[in-house]
Design a binder for these strands. Structure first.
Lengths: 138, 138
DNA sequence: GTTCGTGCAAACGGTTTGCAACAAT
DNA sequence: ATTGTTGCAAACCGTTTGCACGAAC
């Protein structure tokens, strides 16, 4: 993974310590964090960083195409550094989001749906990660 | 479409005028409204209905399986009365959401992804409805 | 010294909750 | 009398915005 400083400079974004801390985390995780989770994590290495700066930086990264937002959790946006096309699996119990490789699934007919011009698409799957038994009724 | 009073009684929900007004609208639209949009619409026929009652009723309908929520718009939940499996298309410009019939698309491999037990899945497509030319740069 | 970035607090929009009045049984 | 429903207002949570201070050019 290219280091944070490079990534920022190459995108024409001034590499401040706060931004470096955010980039270091968010571009190297596959945990699909929310902004709040990024804040929590980054505070460990950069204790004074503000909520506004985190949101601001995340939005900059999105606008530079280094990060994508995904609508996979109720009430919040999650950030995904994997910007190439892929699918997602959401665990019913934990809410954890997993990347599914593009060619784990094959689709036919998606770009020829009558009346629509499809720019992009993804499969969103929900269920359980295998090997866990169903949670007991509380 | 079965009338609202029946739907409610059959689900064991007391059919109050407010609930009937909500059901009348939300179970017969394909517009994927938000709670706020339901409120606006329903106020026309039931001017005194409160925001809390709308949210409450929508949540009851979801818990009874008469309605489903979908994560297709940033910052808000949309409601979909079509509870059978189907796909969605979201217009990039207008944000409008269209139902795509289940068999407009065929998928292979989706329930055998290594390590995951898929309970349900859908394809989410984004693009433009055909026949509209691309919006001019503002 | 002007531009850009930060941190704080306030504002904002969608949703939930607490509660008192009220209707149905 | 008890239970369930409504409407209002306040609370809540994720996100954005306004602004003054400070750093970088």
């Amino acid at each position: 993974m290219a280091d944070a400083l490079q990534v920022l400079s190459q995108s024409g974004v001034r590499p401040t310590p706060q931004r470096i801390a955010v980039v270091d985390f968010v571009l190297s995780t596959d945990a699909h964090p929310t902004a709040e989770e990024v804040l929590q994590y980054v505070r460990a290495t950069c204790p004074t960083i503000s909520r506004a700066t985190v949101y601001n930086t995340l939005n900059v990264l999105v606008s530079k195409g280094l990060l994508r937002t995904q609508l996979l959790r109720e009430g919040t946006i999650v950030f995904d550094p994997k910007v190439e096309a892929h699918h997602h699996f959401v665990d019913d119990e934990t809410g954890r989001i997993y990347d599914i490789p593009w060619d784990a699934v094959t689709i036919k007919g998606e770009d020829s749906v009558e009346g629509f011009t499809v720019r992009e698409y993804q499969v969103v799957m929900r269920g359980r990660v295998a090997g866990r038994r169903k949670r007991m009724k509380k």
